[in-house]
Write a protein that binds this DNA or RNA. Structure first.
Lengths: 180, 180
DNA sequence: TGTACAATTAGGCAGTTATCGAAATATCAA
DNA sequence: TTGATATTTCGATAACTGCCTAATTGTACA
């Protein structure tokens, strides 16, 4: 799960890097207008074919343009659906810092006690992950054992237990529980 | 008119470049959450103070963060109003036509074909410059070779050839032509 | 004033990038 | 197959970037 965070950051950086160049921005401008061939782009922007090719490669790698061969030509086009998807999302999705997890734990725990269940699944996962460490692996717990462990942590034992089960930290079989 | 276009592009590139780095993205994440001092950022992200300083400089240059001295510390904060202003504007602003030269070429060419000769000398120069690339340097062309090259581009070959000669892209000696 | 601490600047190293011309590859057409 | 054209790949170069350590500047406090 934290892995996905890294991936999102990497992808964001790729997109930002792809757009962080004047020539590529102009390229995108032309391609948003209509699809074009490489040599037309080169002539229009006044740079060499290989340079255009290089920039198109980077834009393609970022998913911002699509290529399609048309006889001897290759037609490049802006990936409009991707642009649309990104447009409302780029800046707002500046990734949260790596230590968000640590700060989340500080925020939601008061000592050993859970202040409240986070509403976002990501934060809930971090919080429950810590609570799950109170259970030994490979040991079978009765429901009352589970409650005995959870009650000092959080008043609403039922919700907490359900959350642990929902996210797979606890597995339930009948009235027995095991760390998952 | 074109000047403003260039400025917008430069500013966009600055912003994209500022965000095109994982460390700076994480920095923004921390600063969006709350203002922080440099050494806290360095410790949190695990890089040296000077490196943080360098990144903050770039973010500040892009207008993404604000700095304020607080005693011995300097408090850095995300420029939230700027982020808000940019968020709906970054990608949508790509399609704007770029510099005047590019717009001219797009306007006057339909693929390889010249729609008409621009009347202003500035625009005519850009257009002819592009056509001139069809001629190899240091090669002598007979008039019929010149026509063979120009006819697919523009019906009125005579006017086009004269314009190329007038602006020095083609040199004529008797009935022979050379790229100028 | 002098010491401690926060931050920036300076200098240097390693890796990346934008650009070009030349050469290679791919496609169509004769 | 050969030739023409479109595009990419290769190889090189100059500029830029991210990171570090060491030195410098700026601020507060004893």
């Amino acid at each position: 799960m934290s892995e996905r965070g890294v991936d999102v950051e990497t992808e964001l950086v790729t997109v930002y890097k792809a757009l962080a160049d004047g020539t590529r921005l102009r390229l995108m401008g032309l391609l948003v207008e209509r699809p074009r061939h490489v040599d037309e782009l080169a002539a229009t922007l006044g740079v060499s074919g290989p340079t255009i090719s290089h920039h198109l490669f980077r834009l393609k790698a970022a998913g911002l343009v699509l290529a399609e061969r048309e006889g001897r030509f290759i037609k490049y086009a802006a990936n409009l659906s991707r642009l649309h998807a990104l447009s409302g999302q780029l800046l707002p999705s500046i990734p949260l810092p790596k230590d968000e997890r640590a700060r989340t734990l500080v925020t939601f725990f008061d000592g050993q006690r859970l202040v409240r269940l986070p509403s976002s699944e990501k934060r809930r996962t971090w919080v429950l992950e810590r609570i799950a460490t109170r259970f030994e692996p490979d040991r079978i717990y009765q429901e009352r054992d589970v409650s005995a462990i959870l009650r000092p942590i959080f008043d609403d034992v039922a919700s907490l237990r359900r959350a642990l089960v929902d996210l797979g930290f606890l597995r339930r079989r009948g009235d027995r529980y095991r760390r998952g």
